[in-house]
Protein backbone atom coordinates (compact mmCIF):
# COMPACT_ATOMS: atom_id res chain seq x y z
CA UNK A 1 0.00 0.00 0.00
CA UNK A 2 1.20 3.52 -0.77
CA UNK A 3 2.35 5.60 2.11
CA UNK A 4 0.10 8.51 2.87
CA UNK A 5 1.79 10.94 5.23
CA UNK A 6 -0.12 13.40 7.28
CA UNK A 7 0.63 16.28 9.63
CA UNK A 8 -1.80 18.62 11.39
CA UNK A 9 -2.72 21.65 9.29
CA UNK A 10 -2.80 25.16 10.72
CA UNK A 11 -2.68 27.51 7.77
CA UNK A 12 0.01 25.94 5.58
CA UNK A 13 0.38 22.35 4.43
CA UNK A 14 2.60 20.35 6.77
CA UNK A 15 3.09 23.14 9.28
CA UNK A 16 2.12 20.59 11.94
CA UNK A 17 0.33 23.14 14.16
CA UNK A 18 -1.43 21.83 17.25
CA UNK A 19 -3.36 23.69 19.92
CA UNK A 20 -3.64 22.45 23.47
CA UNK A 21 -5.15 23.63 26.69
CA UNK A 22 -4.66 22.14 30.13
CA UNK A 23 -4.23 23.02 33.77
CA UNK A 24 -1.33 22.28 36.07
CA UNK A 25 -1.47 21.89 39.83
CA UNK A 26 1.07 24.66 40.38
CA UNK A 27 0.88 28.44 40.82
CA UNK A 28 0.69 30.67 37.77
CA UNK A 29 4.17 32.17 37.49
CA UNK A 30 7.21 31.94 35.19
CA UNK A 31 7.96 28.47 36.54
CA UNK A 32 4.40 27.44 35.69
CA UNK A 33 4.82 28.74 32.13
CA UNK A 34 8.05 26.84 31.79
CA UNK A 35 6.33 23.71 33.12
CA UNK A 36 3.55 24.10 30.55
CA UNK A 37 6.09 24.44 27.74
CA UNK A 38 8.03 21.43 28.95
CA UNK A 39 4.80 19.43 29.19
CA UNK A 40 3.99 20.16 25.54
CA UNK A 41 7.54 19.34 24.49
CA UNK A 42 7.35 16.07 26.33
CA UNK A 43 4.29 15.31 24.19
CA UNK A 44 6.49 15.50 21.11
CA UNK A 45 5.77 19.10 20.08
CA UNK A 46 8.49 21.57 19.18
CA UNK A 47 8.52 25.33 18.77
CA UNK A 48 6.13 25.49 21.70
CA UNK A 49 4.46 28.79 22.64
CA UNK A 50 2.50 29.35 25.80
CA UNK A 51 0.10 32.00 24.47
CA UNK A 52 -2.03 32.30 27.58
CA UNK A 53 -1.68 31.47 31.23
CA UNK A 54 -3.91 32.35 34.14
CA UNK A 55 -4.37 31.44 37.78
CA UNK A 56 -7.19 29.07 38.73
CA UNK A 57 -7.18 29.86 42.38
CA UNK A 58 -4.56 28.78 44.82
CA UNK A 59 -2.14 26.22 43.46
CA UNK A 60 -3.71 25.75 40.01
CA UNK A 61 -2.97 27.37 36.68
CA UNK A 62 -4.39 27.17 33.17
CA UNK A 63 -2.52 27.27 29.85
CA UNK A 64 -3.25 27.62 26.17
CA UNK A 65 -0.33 26.29 24.19
CA UNK A 66 0.63 25.99 20.54
CA UNK A 67 3.29 23.72 19.14
CA UNK A 68 4.24 21.76 16.05
CA UNK A 69 4.46 18.12 15.21
CA UNK A 70 7.50 17.17 13.16
CA UNK A 71 6.94 13.51 12.37
CA UNK A 72 3.97 12.78 10.12
CA UNK A 73 1.80 9.76 10.60
CA UNK A 74 1.12 7.32 7.80
CA UNK A 75 -2.61 6.86 7.28
CA UNK A 76 -2.17 3.74 5.20
CA UNK A 77 -0.87 1.88 8.25
CA UNK A 78 -3.86 2.69 10.46
CA UNK A 79 -6.22 -0.06 11.35
CA UNK A 80 -9.77 1.28 11.47
CA UNK A 81 -12.68 -0.84 12.56
CA UNK A 82 -16.15 0.37 11.82
CA UNK A 83 -19.45 -1.45 11.73
CA UNK A 84 -19.33 -3.28 8.42
CA UNK A 85 -23.04 -3.50 7.71
CA UNK A 86 -24.17 -1.17 4.96
CA UNK A 87 -26.43 1.40 6.56
CA UNK A 88 -30.03 1.32 5.32
CA UNK A 89 -32.55 4.15 5.48
CA UNK A 90 -35.53 4.00 7.84
CA UNK A 91 -37.80 2.83 5.00
CA UNK A 92 -35.32 0.16 3.99
CA UNK A 93 -35.02 -1.08 7.55
CA UNK A 94 -38.80 -1.29 7.85
CA UNK A 95 -39.05 -3.16 4.53
CA UNK A 96 -36.27 -5.51 5.63
CA UNK A 97 -38.08 -6.34 8.85
CA UNK A 98 -41.39 -6.85 7.04
CA UNK A 99 -39.77 -9.21 4.55
CA UNK A 100 -37.47 -11.26 6.77
CA UNK A 101 -39.29 -11.43 10.10
CA UNK A 102 -42.80 -12.48 10.98
CA UNK A 103 -42.98 -10.48 14.20
CA UNK A 104 -41.96 -7.07 15.55
CA UNK A 105 -38.40 -6.85 16.82
CA UNK A 106 -37.95 -5.69 20.39
CA UNK A 107 -35.18 -3.17 21.13
CA UNK A 108 -34.62 -2.33 24.77
CA UNK A 109 -32.26 0.43 25.78
CA UNK A 110 -30.90 2.26 28.80
CA UNK A 111 -28.20 4.57 29.97
CA UNK A 112 -26.56 2.31 32.53
CA UNK A 113 -24.64 2.53 35.76
CA UNK A 114 -23.65 5.91 37.07
CA UNK A 115 -24.65 7.78 33.95
CA UNK A 116 -27.59 10.11 34.51
CA UNK A 117 -27.59 11.37 30.92
CA UNK A 118 -30.35 10.26 28.61
CA UNK A 119 -29.33 12.37 25.59
CA UNK A 120 -27.62 9.47 23.86
CA UNK A 121 -30.27 6.81 24.32
CA UNK A 122 -33.04 9.32 23.60
CA UNK A 123 -31.38 10.38 20.35
CA UNK A 124 -31.46 6.78 19.14
CA UNK A 125 -34.74 5.57 20.65
CA UNK A 126 -37.19 8.42 21.12
CA UNK A 127 -39.80 9.18 18.50
CA UNK A 128 -38.21 12.48 17.65
CA UNK A 129 -34.67 11.24 17.20
CA UNK A 130 -32.02 13.82 16.55
CA UNK A 131 -30.77 16.01 13.68
CA UNK A 132 -33.77 15.07 11.58
CA UNK A 133 -33.26 11.32 11.96
CA UNK A 134 -36.25 9.71 13.64
CA UNK A 135 -35.66 7.40 16.60
CA UNK A 136 -36.48 3.71 16.79
CA UNK A 137 -39.89 4.30 18.41
CA UNK A 138 -41.06 5.58 15.05
CA UNK A 139 -39.91 2.51 13.11
CA UNK A 140 -42.60 0.15 11.89
CA UNK A 141 -41.73 -3.38 12.96
CA UNK A 142 -39.68 -2.24 15.95
CA UNK A 143 -40.96 -2.13 19.48
CA UNK A 144 -38.64 0.27 21.26
CA UNK A 145 -38.45 0.33 25.06
CA UNK A 146 -36.36 3.10 26.60
CA UNK A 147 -35.64 2.52 30.30
CA UNK A 148 -33.97 5.91 30.79
CA UNK A 149 -30.89 6.60 32.85
CA UNK A 150 -29.04 5.13 35.81
CA UNK A 151 -30.34 1.67 35.17
CA UNK A 152 -28.15 -0.97 36.69
CA UNK A 153 -26.93 -3.88 34.60
CA UNK A 154 -29.03 -6.43 36.48
CA UNK A 155 -32.23 -4.46 35.93
CA UNK A 156 -31.49 -4.02 32.25
CA UNK A 157 -31.02 -7.76 31.78
CA UNK A 158 -34.11 -8.57 33.82
CA UNK A 159 -36.24 -6.16 31.74
CA UNK A 160 -34.73 -7.49 28.52
CA UNK A 161 -35.80 -11.01 29.49
CA UNK A 162 -39.23 -9.83 30.61
CA UNK A 163 -39.91 -8.09 27.29
CA UNK A 164 -38.25 -10.88 25.28
CA UNK A 165 -35.95 -8.31 23.72
CA UNK A 166 -33.98 -9.09 20.58
CA UNK A 167 -31.55 -6.23 20.91
CA UNK A 168 -30.14 -4.50 23.99
CA UNK A 169 -28.82 -0.96 23.57
CA UNK A 170 -26.52 0.39 26.25
CA UNK A 171 -25.69 4.08 26.33
CA UNK A 172 -22.77 5.72 28.12
CA UNK A 173 -22.59 9.47 27.73
CA UNK A 174 -20.56 11.07 30.46
CA UNK A 175 -17.88 9.17 32.18
CA UNK A 176 -15.43 9.80 34.94
CA UNK A 177 -12.13 8.01 35.31
CA UNK A 178 -13.15 5.37 32.76
CA UNK A 179 -15.94 3.98 34.88
CA UNK A 180 -17.88 3.29 31.66
CA UNK A 181 -15.34 0.62 30.69
CA UNK A 182 -15.81 -1.20 33.98
CA UNK A 183 -19.55 -0.91 33.72
CA UNK A 184 -19.71 -2.22 30.15
CA UNK A 185 -17.38 -5.09 30.96
CA UNK A 186 -19.55 -5.96 33.93
CA UNK A 187 -22.62 -6.12 31.70
CA UNK A 188 -21.04 -8.59 29.28
CA UNK A 189 -19.80 -10.67 32.21
CA UNK A 190 -23.28 -10.68 33.70
CA UNK A 191 -24.80 -11.92 30.42
CA UNK A 192 -22.19 -14.65 30.18
CA UNK A 193 -22.56 -15.72 33.79
CA UNK A 194 -26.32 -16.03 33.34
CA UNK A 195 -25.90 -17.89 30.06
CA UNK A 196 -27.80 -15.15 28.25
CA UNK A 197 -25.11 -13.76 25.97
CA UNK A 198 -26.34 -15.58 22.86
CA UNK A 199 -29.94 -14.59 23.38
CA UNK A 200 -29.41 -10.94 22.52
CA UNK A 201 -27.63 -8.71 20.08
CA UNK A 202 -25.89 -6.20 22.33
CA UNK A 203 -24.89 -2.77 21.13
CA UNK A 204 -23.23 0.09 22.96
CA UNK A 205 -23.28 3.76 22.03
CA UNK A 206 -21.84 6.97 23.37
CA UNK A 207 -19.58 9.92 22.78
CA UNK A 208 -16.48 8.00 23.77
CA UNK A 209 -17.45 4.66 22.24
CA UNK A 210 -15.91 3.23 19.07
CA UNK A 211 -16.74 0.02 17.29
CA UNK A 212 -13.26 -1.29 18.06
CA UNK A 213 -13.70 -0.63 21.77
CA UNK A 214 -17.13 -2.25 21.72
CA UNK A 215 -15.80 -5.42 20.08
CA UNK A 216 -12.93 -5.54 22.52
CA UNK A 217 -15.38 -5.40 25.43
CA UNK A 218 -17.46 -8.22 23.96
CA UNK A 219 -20.34 -6.25 22.42
CA UNK A 220 -21.62 -6.97 18.93
CA UNK A 221 -21.20 -3.39 17.82
CA UNK A 222 -20.39 0.10 19.03
CA UNK A 223 -21.58 3.44 17.76
CA UNK A 224 -19.86 6.73 18.49
CA UNK A 225 -20.70 10.32 17.59
CA UNK A 226 -22.56 11.06 14.35
CA UNK A 227 -24.36 7.72 14.33
CA UNK A 228 -28.14 7.67 14.21
CA UNK A 229 -31.06 5.32 14.73
CA UNK A 230 -30.86 4.04 11.15
CA UNK A 231 -27.18 3.05 11.65
CA UNK A 232 -28.04 1.12 14.78
CA UNK A 233 -31.18 -0.42 13.27
CA UNK A 234 -29.37 -1.45 10.06
CA UNK A 235 -26.71 -3.27 12.00
CA UNK A 236 -29.14 -4.89 14.41
CA UNK A 237 -31.66 -6.22 11.88
CA UNK A 238 -28.88 -7.68 9.76
CA UNK A 239 -27.26 -9.26 12.79
CA UNK A 240 -30.61 -10.72 13.87
CA UNK A 241 -31.24 -12.04 10.38
CA UNK A 242 -27.80 -13.70 10.30
CA UNK A 243 -28.42 -15.19 13.71
CA UNK A 244 -31.80 -16.56 12.60
CA UNK A 245 -30.31 -18.17 9.50
CA UNK A 246 -27.56 -19.71 11.61
CA UNK A 247 -30.05 -21.30 13.94
CA UNK A 248 -32.12 -22.77 11.13
Amino acid sequence: MNKKLLLPYGDTLDDGKVQLSFSLPCPCNPTGDAAAKATAEAMGLYDVHVVHSSALGEGFSFYVVYGMRKDPIDISTLEVRDVETQAMSKDEVEAFIAEKFDRPLVFIGASTGSDAHTVGIDAIMNMKGIHGHYGLERYKGIQAINLGSQVDNETLLEKAKEHRADVILVSQTVTQKDIHIRNLTAFVELLEAEGERDNFIIVVGGARISHALAKELGFDAGFGPKKYAFDVASFAVNALFDKMRHQE
Binding site: L56, F62, A207
Partner: peptide, 13 residues
Protein backbone atom coordinates in the same frame (compact mmCIF):
# COMPACT_ATOMS: atom_id res chain seq x y z
CA UNK B 1 -20.81 19.12 29.03
CA UNK B 2 -21.51 15.57 27.80
CA UNK B 3 -17.80 14.71 27.86
CA UNK B 4 -16.72 14.46 31.46
CA UNK B 5 -17.37 15.90 34.92
CA UNK B 6 -15.85 19.40 34.91
CA UNK B 7 -12.11 19.90 34.92
CA UNK B 8 -10.87 22.64 37.23
CA UNK B 9 -10.24 24.81 34.16
CA UNK B 10 -13.73 24.22 32.70
CA UNK B 11 -15.24 25.80 35.77
CA UNK B 12 -12.88 28.79 35.63
CA UNK B 13 -13.67 29.39 31.95
Amino acid sequence: EAIHTPFVSDRAL
